[in-house]
Structure formats: C-alpha cells, structure tokens
C-alpha cells in the first residue's frame, strides 16, 4: 500500500493563497471554515525582518489523537494510511476537533466533523490533491514515500525536514523543508 505524505517547501511558498481557494472549491468547504491555511510569520526588529510562509493542513498523523478520541470509528485510518472521516458514522460530538493539536478540524454546519482528506476522491482517480495541483510556486509536493524514486522521497532524503509540534508525539505525515525559522510551531 502507498504511504502518502506531503512535503512543504517553505522557501517556495509565495503566499498567493491559491491552495486555500482551490481546497474550498474542490471540497465545498462552507463559509468561514477552511481545511488548509497559510501562516505568515515575521521575526526580528525593523528593518531587520525575516518572513516565513507556511502552509498548514491536517497532518494525517500516524499516531492520530483524533482517531483515539472518536467514539464511533467515524474518524479512521484508511487503507492508504490517511486519516479520513466517515460522515455517516460521525455523531458530531466534536471530541476529535478538541483532540487535534493542529486545529485542523472544524464542525461542519451539517453536524459532522470535517478536515483535509488529502483529496482522497482525487487520489482514487490518480490525481494529486487540489492544493498541490494549483500551487503556483510548487511549494506543496505530494506523493508516496514508499516509492524511493518519488519526488517526496527524494526531497526528504536531500533536505532536513521537520514536522509541526514534534513533541506532541503524533508523527505527522506533512513535512516541512527549508524552514526559515528554527523551532517548529
């Protein structure tokens, strides 16, 4: 089975937010809610400032607290290793939303919990997630890490990578390379 991961090349993000819009359009994300976001962080004292743009989304953690918190198995690990939500089984208790250290989930107005699915419907058609397809700077790279010649495997071999809140022990599958700032958020 493939092991899908996303690599975020922080240097290449230009902050155009096309990924955010593509995601909303592709997945019918309701008003006021987002499945992904771009964080703009500025450090230093004027005029010596440095900026980092960083995409954030569900990390499809290997040790996912949202799956543990779910009372109905609506939040589950799919065969491809991604974390998915069964909308029928979800009772809307919101425990998974509170359990996620990355604020990746939200309560959909129709009652169920929702989050990034790595566009699993597109993966089944052999396509990449909408945010990856649309990324102008090619900052978001997606693929199967088990495939040694895949772009993600090559990048993770070539560069030091980090994950968000590593100390939380969730073992995310979204990796950041070429980060401007030391210390993960």
């Amino acid at each position: 089975m493939p092991k899908y991961v996303m690599v975020i090349d922080v240097e290449k993000c230009i902050g155009c937010m096309a990924c955010v819009i593509a995601c909303k359009k592709e997945n019918n994300v309701p008003e006021e809610h987002f499945r992904t976001r771009v964080v703009e962080e500025v450090r230093g004292e004027f005029p010596h400032l440095r900026m980092e743009l960083r995409s954030e989304l569900c990390n499809h953690c290997e040790n996912a607290p949202c799956i543990d918190a779910c009372p109905t198995r609506a939040s589950h690990r799919a065969k491809d290793g991604t974390v998915q939500i069964d909308r029928v089984k979800c009772i809307g208790c919101k425990a998974c939303i509170l359990a996620c250290p990355y604020d990746a989930r939200y309560s959909h107005p129709k009652g169920f919990a929702d989050k990034c699915s790595f566009c699993d419907h597109r993966l089944k058609e052999g396509k990449k997630p909408a945010c990856v397809e649309t990324c102008l700077g090619k900052s978001r790279i997606f693929g199967d890490i088990e495939e040694p010649k895949s772009e993600v495997a090559e990048l993770l071999k070539k560069y030091d990578s980090s994950v968000r809140l590593e100390f939380a022990g969730t073992r995310p599958r979204v990796f950041y390379i070429k980060k401007q700032f030391a210390g993960g958020l």
């Binding site: 009372p71 109905t72 198995r73 609506a74 029928v88 089984k89 979800c90 009772i91 809307g92 208790c93 919101k94 309560s107 959909h108 129709k110 009652g111 169920f112 919990a113």
Partner: peptide, 12 residues
Amino acid sequence: IDLGKPQSLIWG
C-alpha cells in the same frame, strides 16, 4: 442536544 448529528447516535 450538543451533538451535531444526534440522529447518528446509534453508531455509538
């Protein structure tokens, strides 16, 4: 009444 989808409670 806090549940988003109380009609699905049976799954619990």
